[in-house]
Every structure is written in C-alpha cells, then in structure tokens.
Nucleic acid binder design. Structure first.
Lengths: 368, 368
DNA sequence: CCGGATAGTTCAGATACTATACGAACCATG
DNA sequence: CATGGTTCGTATAGTATCTGAACTATCCGG
C-alpha cells in the first residue's frame, strides 16, 4: 500500500508514476483535456496522450465529448476519471456481524451490506462462509450497477500479517491461527488483509471527512479509543504496527490504572464505558490532543465512532485547542466529525485497494 | 552559456534514484564490487557499472584494489563511498556565538569552530560577517584536509522560509527581516537556511545516535525542550512547521500555566530552569514519552542537550517505558543518549546538505 | 473565406534500462 | 603445467519511455 520507496526502479516505474499522477489529478482537480493534463503533471502533450491511452485501455478513465468551448482554438476532448464505474470491495468481520461494501474511485460508498450474527466462538470456516456470501452479493450488485471492482480487502479485529495474510490471533473472536487466503478462490482476486485499527484513518482519507488532506489525526471513540496517523498522505504504522494508539495518550498521570501498564490514559477518561459527561469527554480529549497537535502539527483532527455523535464535544474540543496550543490562535487545527457510519473498517479496507490502484494503475489489467 | 535543462527530465529520475540507492548502500552496508552492488540494489551488472562510473566521475566513490580473494571465480574490484573526502559545511548562529563545522559523507564531524561573542542587538551584517569568516576558515581547513565540500547550510534561531531564505524574525537575537542570501557570494555556493529546532533530529540521523534508524523521536533538553520526529527517514515538519514540539506534550493537566496557553507541559517539569531532581525529570519525561510512543511507535528515542548528560535519567526513562507502554514488555522502545555535543544545529544543517546529496547525487557536478 | 490559436498525433532522437554474450581473472584438479 | 569451472566486468543489441518539433485538425472572429 504505502509505496516502498527504497526499491529498484525499472523504466516502467516512470510510467507508473505518471499514470498515478494523471489519475489523481483527474480525481482531485476534475476532468481536463490532454493538453491541460500535460501542463498539470509536467510532461509533453505526446506523453500525456500516451498516458491517457494507457489508462483508457484499463477502463480507468473515459473520454467525454468535446468541450472547453468559448475560447479560441481547437477545443480539447475532456477526459475524466472513471470514478463511478471503478470500485473496490471492502469487507469487515466484527464480533456480532459481517460487513461488505463497495467504494468507487471517487470515494463514494455505493453498496453496503451487513449480516448480523454472533461470530464469537464460531468456527472460522463458518464465518468466512458468511463473508464470502455477503461479498459475492455485493460484487453482484456492483456488477449490476456497472461498477467494475478491481480488488478487495478484509478488515479483521486481530493481529495479522498483511503480507502472508495469516491471522495470528483475534481475542474478541476467540480465533487463533486462521488462514485467510482461501477466500481468494471464491472471489477471483487476491484479497488483502489488514488490522481494523488503522483502517478508519484510511477510510476518512479516501471517502470521508479527510478527503483532500495530507496530514491529519483520526480518533475513533468506542469502548476503547483507537486512531490513526496520516502524515503526508501515508498511514504511519510504526515499527511494530502499533502507531496511532491515541487511546493511550496520557491525560492524567494520577488517573486510573490502565491495562497497558500506565495510568490516566485517554481511553479511561473518554471511552464509552467511563461514564464521563460530554464536558469531561471534551476536556480529556483536549488534553490528549494538545500533545498530539504539538507533536505532529496536523491539518485537522477527525473524530469518529461514538465521538462523532456529539457536535457539542467537537465544538468544545476545537475551541479549547484554539486556546491551549502554540499556533492555535494564529492557525488553529481544524476539528471535524466523521461522516462515515459504523462500517469504517470495511470502507478503509476498500480504501487500501483504491490507494494501491491509484499509486500504481498498471495493477488494473488491460481489459477490453 | 549555462544551459541547465530546466525541463523535468523524468527518465533522469530513475538514474538519480539508482545513484542514490547505490551510494547509500555503499555507506550503510560497506564497500562492494560492481556485481555485488548490482544484486544489492536490484539492477543488472551493466547498469551497476554505468552507475559506478557516474558516481566516480563526481568523485563520490573511489575504486579500491582487487579483493574478495578466497572464493572461486574472478575477484571483483571493490568500490567504496568517498565518505571521508566529501563533506558539507554546517553553520549556526546562536545568541552568544557562531559555529561552523564540516561533516563528511560518512557522518563524521571533521572540523568544528566556535566564535564566541554576543549576537543580541548586534546588526545582522556584523554577525553575518563573523559567520562568513568562520565559514571560510572551516572551508579552508577542509580543503587542506582533502575534503571537498559540496554545499552548506545555516541554522538560525528564528522563523525562516527555507525556499526564499528570508529570516522573518529571530526573537532572541532581536532580528527582523534579514536577507540571508548574501552569504552565497562569499562562499561560492547556495547556502541553505533552516530553523534550528528540528535540525537536531537530522543531525542524529546522519551523524549521531540515530544513524541507521528509520523512525525515531529526538528530544532536546535545555531551558526549553524541543525535539524532532523522523518517520521512515524523513523529518516531519508539520503543516505549519511546528511539529516536534515535545516540550508541550502534557505531563500534568493541573500543572503550571505555560506560555503556550496550556498547563503542565513537559517543558515546565523537565526544563533546565524547573529545578526538578533527576528523578522528577525522568518521571516527567516518561509520562510525556508514553504518549509519544503510543502515537508513533518509534524504534528509539534519542535524548539530547542537557538530557544527554545523565545516564541515570536515560536508564530510568527506559525502564519506566518498558513497564508503562503497550508493547513495552514485548518489544521495548530503545532510549539512547545523544553523542553529539552542543553544536547539533550546525551539524544538522550540514546533514540537510548531505541528505540532499545522497538523495540526488547528480547535484554534485562532474568534476575532473 | 481566411488567419490566428489551440488540440492532438506522428516521427525522429535521446536516454536508461534489460538480456545476452564474451573475454578476463582466479581457483581447483588432474 | 594444462584444463575446466566460476565469477567479474564490459560490450552489444533490443526495448521502453520521454522530449521536441513538425504536422494535421478544429474552432473563433473578422
């Protein structure tokens, strides 16, 4: 997903980079003619034409009718990203349900399905069967709606190795050592696997309140408080994959003992089970976010999960941060509420696929 | 007719990337033959040969004698990075002195000069004159020692725009709106300019305790407490350039009022003027670093400035972090003491030049 | 209807890579 | 000492991509 920068480049890498830039430009700055695109990404018209032809052969862009009338000279032919007709499948296994969604290139959640049912102590094979069923249904509906799915990924509530796609342990599901590659065959493509914790941030980046931002912090409130850190468009996973644990930022060094071995973690003061009032939650959040803001100086903070429910908390936190941070009065850090629902992890899983596609459009086969 | 191709030659980007990888490989993994280098960076032998020739023409590497005897087959010719014969100039203006140093490609500080003298309320032209003098002396000595300086940079204690190299304000110097480009002419190259706050982290990355690390946090103790965040080899500057302000991470929400508008910042509990005992300093540091570690999950924490003086503080913090963080008992975050002296910012300034050179070796001209 | 302007295509030239072949240098073995 | 095996480095051919300039296509205004 996050491009490994220290790797050998062949000549195709230049092509991939240009294709990526062109596609992102179309998505973020809107449709344009080949000549305009050439100026946007800094290549010649000849190159831009070749790139457009390449992306068109992968069905990632579509050629519109003539346009840009009014100005003198030959009008250009607008090309647009196929934001509506290309998408990715996102899956999510939770304790009491299974979710499938399809997110398109433009970041719209087009299809969303939930199947309730207790997944705890259920044999993995049975649950994976449910996942397969709901995934197939979503794919079928996507096909019917004219969305071509270029891949998919699965979010699991446990410790996984995304490269081998092996699940080591999922405490809440009571699962141990499950091989998740078997879903590939049923779906027809290689299903990515990732931990659900950080996926919320990616979901916000691609389809939520953080679209267009480069650096932001995502905080998801629930029984525990999790989060994700996106710096310069890339998710920070940390050396052991533990980054973004905002729930364990210190709020009060004399606070209650936490399972992490520390005292006064944010989770204990603002988690759903803490019984705190909105004022107290806002206060605790502010104290924790003060540290975060001074550390990474983000463009915005996105509040998700239960924290997104209350406009009051958001307002209070924003105001308090304005008062209590160094650059706060001059250039305050924005505080936004997530607009995504409860299926963030599934959407985030789809976002990993979309990110990969945007970073390297050649992953999409040259189809008819 | 200095006709430098201003056009974005994107094929050259591949070349630059390969040159960069090869040079970094030589520095980090040691000298090697062309064939070994080809395998290391993932290109063919022919390409590796061409890359070696290119770097040699820039005097960035030197060809050693034959070697790798013992094994069967024709022995390769070792090439090594010219770690000791190429360097960069680092300059620093402080309140009561001016510093110049030369750091070589291998990360060794080869030359270091300080000129004491009160720079407050002195007209900038006078101070810049001192800087010029000490810089020229350092460059002359570097030349005498056989070090070719490929560039230089200046660290200033104020708000600057590195792109225009204009100093807006330096509160402690009582400077306002100073143009720093005038030093170029005297030195013979374009002198980079940067704020001193984050440069310590870059110094540690290139020449200090963080050599070889990809993700770490640098904490510098003094009257105030500053720091820097390096994630995946890149310094995180933040949206407004305020990232890394570890001194304002919250230690006690009921602590003393801070100038930043908040309460209980680390700076107030562990700063040099706080009068805290080593135990108290370690305790405050631990509480602050708990938040940091849970947020970015770094490989190591580097304590610099006054904090590097005490082995006791380092030990305590390391032990407490082991106990009080999520992954601490399993994979503890290392705590190291800086091995650089008081001229960190100057060394960091030189490091910016070395980083740029390593990232794009074509910046170094093809010399005889 | 024609000139000016802009869009898109075509073609030659440059560059940097890969793949393969080949000579050079060294070791082991008969 | 001669021969074969192994590895190094270079040379050559082929491929992919970008650039630059020339060319065609299309629209606008007079």
């Amino acid at each position: 997903m996050t491009a490994v920068a220290r790797r050998s480049m062949n000549l195709g890498a230049v092509r991939r980079h240009h294709l990526s830039m062109l596609l992102e430009s179309l998505l973020q700055e809107g449709p344009a003619s080949r000549a305009v695109l050439a100026r946007r990404i800094g290549v010649t018209k000849a190159t831009a034409s070749a790139l457009v032809a390449d992306l068109a052969a992968r069905c990632l862009i579509i050629e519109g009718g003539a346009s840009s009338a009014g100005t003198s000279g030959r009008p250009g032919v607008e090309v647009a990203a196929a934001g509506w007709s290309v998408g990715a499948l996102g899956l999510q296994i939770e304790v009491d349900r299974v979710v499938a969604c399809v997110v398109d290139l433009a970041g719209a959640v087009r299809i969303e399905h939930r199947v309730d049912g207790d997944n705890r102590r259920t044999v993995p094979a049975r649950v994976l069967g449910r996942v397969e069923a709901v995934a197939k249904q979503a794919l079928a509906e996507a096909g019917a709606a004219g969305i071509r799915c270029v891949g998919g990924a699965l979010a699991v509530p446990g410790l996984v190795d995304p490269s081998t796609r092996a699940l080591f342990v999922a405490p809440n599901l009571h699962w141990l050592d499950v091989d998740l590659t078997r879903l590939d065959q049923a779906l027809g493509f290689e299903l990515g696997v990732d931990n659900e914790a950080n996926l919320g941030a990616l979901a916000e980046l691609r389809a939520g309140a953080a679209v267009g931002l480069r650096t932001f912090v995502y905080v998801s409130g629930g029984v525990g408080i999790g989060g994700g850190l996106v710096i310069d468009g890339a998710l920070v996973r940390g050396v052991h994959g533990f980054a973004g644990e905002i729930g364990h930022v210190v709020v009060d060094p004399n606070g209650p003992q936490c399972a992490c071995g520390s005292r006064g973690c944010l989770e204990a003061h603002a988690g759903t089970g803490s019984g705190a009032t909105p004022e107290q939650v806002a206060r605790a959040l502010t104290v924790a976010l003060r540290s975060v803001v001074h550390l990474v100086d983000p463009q915005a903070i996105i509040l998700g999960g239960d924290l997104a429910a209350s406009a009051e908390v958001t307002e209070r936190v924003a105001e308090q941060l304005r008062q209590e941070t160094l650059g706060g009065r001059w250039r305050p850090c924005e505080v936004r509420r997530s607009i995504l629902g409860t299926d963030v992890a599934a959407i985030g899983a789809a976002a990993t696929v979309l990110n990969a596609t945007l970073a390297d459009p050649t992953l999409v086969p040259l189809s008819a």
